[in-house]
């Protein structure tokens, strides 16, 4: 996994942590899905994901006044940073959080453990097939 892919996974994990009621996102599922996107998604989408993760990493100084990368923050401060970035007055900055939630939501919401905890039907595998004749 390349550094920007690993960073994307990390930020998505921060966006969707475990709670008292819901389990954490399956790391292997997250890794597989991010790699799938990196392999098959359009270039624009991949760039948007990496850029959003990078902006999240580098902007705590703009949101909570800490000149540190988000990796160095504790969970509470990091969540405060995320919440403030999501409400930031600069449109493009808050759109990065939308991008993280869209991508992360598609992976987190398909996690069998999360779905089971919410009493939702588990998904089967996506066949990825098409008619060839």
């Amino acid at each position: 996994m390349k550094p920007w892919q690993a960073l994307s996974c990390r930020v998505l994990e921060w966006a969707f942590p475990s709670t008292d009621r819901l389990p954490p996102m399956d790391r292997q599922l997250l890794r597989d899905r991010v790699l799938l996107m990196c392999r098959e998604a359009p270039f624009k989408m991949r760039v948007a994901l990496y850029a959003s993760a990078l902006i999240f990493l580098l902007t705590p100084v703009l949101t909570i006044g800490r000149p540190l990368p988000a990796t160095w923050l504790g969970p509470k401060l990091r969540e405060r940073h995320g919440a403030r970035l999501a409400r930031h007055r600069v449109y493009i900055l808050r759109q990065t959080v939308v991008m993280l939630k869209v991508v992360g939501g598609m992976i987190w919401g398909a996690d069998p453990a999360v779905r089971s905890a919410l009493q939702l039907r588990p998904y089967g595998e996506d066949p990825g097939t098409w008619r060839t004749s």
Binding site: F16, T19, A83, A86, G105, G109, V114
Partner: peptide, 25 residues
């Protein structure tokens, strides 16, 4: 909307976001 899509409509980030999504059903 499926759970995967509604995740982007709930406010917050991290624990508050997931706690909000606990109400999905």
């Amino acid at each position: 909307l499926p759970l995967e899509v509604i995740a982007s409509r709930v406010g917050g980030f991290g624990t508050p976001l997931v706690e909000g999504l606990e109400a999905y059903q």
